[in-house]
Write a protein that binds this DNA or RNA. Structure first.
Lengths: 336, 336
DNA sequence: AGATAGTTATGGCATATGTCAATAACATTA
DNA sequence: TAATGTTATTGACATATGCCATAACTATCT
């Protein structure tokens, strides 16, 4: 019974405290983490050594994991190397492809893909990177799975104007979230995502501040974006980003998907319409010049869109799940 | 009962196997590791998904850990930052210091320090490093704690001639072991560690092959070595590396320790005798020019020797245990 | 001082993990 | 094809871990 703790008890406690009086500055968290993860000691034993209860040791270890003092990570290169990924790379011309085991519960798929996306970004990230960030549920979700890390001189920049519509995965939010986790410089694009006429777009693009932003975007070493299919309900209209009518124009022109600011058809041809003239986003040529163009996304209904995107070369790195990857492989094989 | 497995059973098994038929090339190990470590699923659940027993999942995870597919590591910078380490750095002028919690069982101390040493080396290692390796129990033990890793263009070189005596921690063994684990180029020094006269040493040092080796050593970016005290039995004489008489000469001259090929006294003065003229090892000037000189060692009886070594600036990075670190701090404070 | 609220540490229990000997699956040889 | 050795898989048990309600402690206020 815990209530029994009295002076006698306390004395006996002191006897076991010999090794590590807490006056030592050395972090108990660190201490426990070392003994547990490096030396493989049992929590009981560590509790003895530190003169605390096993439960406390558990708490210390928890803290160590939370604070990133211990890092448990899966070598991402192995995930890329997995057979399905490899086959898809060969068929599609992707330079890299990360494939997640498809979860049993489809509802968690999007979440888990963005989780893997976060790991992939972390693994590929290095000093002096400039990351162009798009917007969308997937990208926002990715930002939440990033563990705080610190590389010198990282820049995170918006590739699309800040949409004004009311939705919780705005370009600004995606960008700031990611920058925050990476302790990076955050460069927002202070312009609307869509304007009313081509003329307004021209005027804006000639504004010095916005011009500078697009110049910065040309320095991008990476971009991150999701991908949407156009059949059925999409968040493009739901979010108020564009009108149903504008979207229908693209559908009528044969577009099947949208990624990183551009529409494309089932064979990877970029589809343009009047809307492009009003959409403030990174120029296509600049986008295609970015060395690492990372697309995060997967779902059965997205397969057609992803295929088109891959053919359009919008992405050269893909993070997806196994079912989607397999469908894509099948898709490619059919065409041969 | 396992014997009961028959066709009926097999069929039911197939039913649960839907998700991951083993025909998929994707590594089950990787798959299990992802589900367990990234998604935090329980082994039971993973077993279901993969259609294998929980015990097998456990085995897969074990394999994943063994093969380094999952990495569990403690941020080494935190260990360096711990208070005792920091204080010792300031007092001694070390550029870095890694301090291990002193284990309860003194018999395991040497082993655990070399374990930490291995982690430290791994953490500091990067592409294009050239590592000068000394010999000794500690260094050999360190080599065994290295986990296989692969950086491009690492070179591992012996800093001392290959001793001919019979002991199991010879320079050659230390070097090859480390090179092997790091998948590095291994450059051995094809000469005895000690020769009979100064003249023989001169002749050897003028041999082109050996000359080249010493030129290579000047390119070292790191050295790794242990440290020995001279009072009591030492492995210097036990190993047949040098005679009792030769060692006594150094003791008489005031030497208290030996590290990285050189003797020094309690205040950090290098102590030389005739033996140095016959000892084939990296030149002292070259040694002191190496940017990272990592000494691995700790024990109550080594404190005096380590103090001398620190004063002699033979090391600028120290890996030790807390008791030793604390004793060193006390030692420094006494002198003020 | 005594009461109060907020924080940290603990005991004990439900669950998850690790171990191992037994057995199945497979490969090899006679 | 049977016998034999080798490796992988498993069920069952012993142990370690994760969790949470509550005790102990601390700081603050009356």
């Amino acid at each position: 019974m815990p209530g029994k703790r009295d002076k006698a008890d306390d004395d006996s406690r002191h006897a076991t405290r010999r090794a590590v009086p807490s006056r030592f500055g050395m972090d108990e968290v660190l201490w426990a983490a070392w003994l547990y993860y490096e030396e493989g000691q049992k929590q009981d034993k560590i509790a003895d050594q530190l003169g605390i209860s096993r439960a406390s040791v558990f708490n210390l270890l928890q803290k160590a994991r939370d604070e990133g003092i211990v890092n448990i990570s899966i070598d991402p290169s192995r995930i890329a190397r997995a057979d399905v990924a490899l086959e898809l790379c060969e068929l599609s011309g992707l330079s890299e492809c990360y494939v997640l085991p498809t979860p049993q519960d489809p509802a968690t798929l999007a979440n888990e893909i963005s989780h893997l996306g976060a790991r992939v970004l972390e693994a590929r990230l290095h000093a002096d990177d400039t990351i162009g960030v798009a917007w969308g549920r997937t990208v926002l979700s990715l930002s939440k799975h990033l563990t705080s890390m610190r590389h010198p001189n990282i820049t995170v920049a918006q590739i699309t104007g800040s949409a004004v519509a009311t939705f919780d995965f705005s370009p600004v939010l995606c960008t700031t979230n990611i920058a925050d986790r990476l302790s990076a410089r955050c460069v927002n694009l202070h312009a609307p995502g869509v304007v009313s006429t081509a003329q307004v777009k021209d005027i804006l693009l000639n504004e010095p501040e916005i011009r500078n932003h697009f110049t910065l975007l040309q320095q991008c070493t990476k971009t991150i974006f999701g991908v949407t299919q156009l059949d059925g309900e999409t968040l493009l209209e739901q979010s108020g980003f564009m009108s149903d009518a504008a979207l229908q124009v693209y559908r009528d022109l044969g577009a099947v998907g949208f990624a990183a600011g551009y529409f494309f058809d089932a064979e990877g041809q970029i589809v343009r319409s009047e809307f492009d003239e009003r959409h403030i986003t990174m120029a296509l040529d600049d986008l295609l010049n970015v060395p690492e163009r990372i697309c995060i996304g997967g779902a059965p209904q997205k397969v057609g869109a992803i295929y088109g995107m891959l053919q359009a070369r919008i992405a050269n790195v893909l993070v997806t799940d196994e079912t989607t990857a397999q469908s894509l492989i099948d898709h490619y094989k059919q065409r041969t």
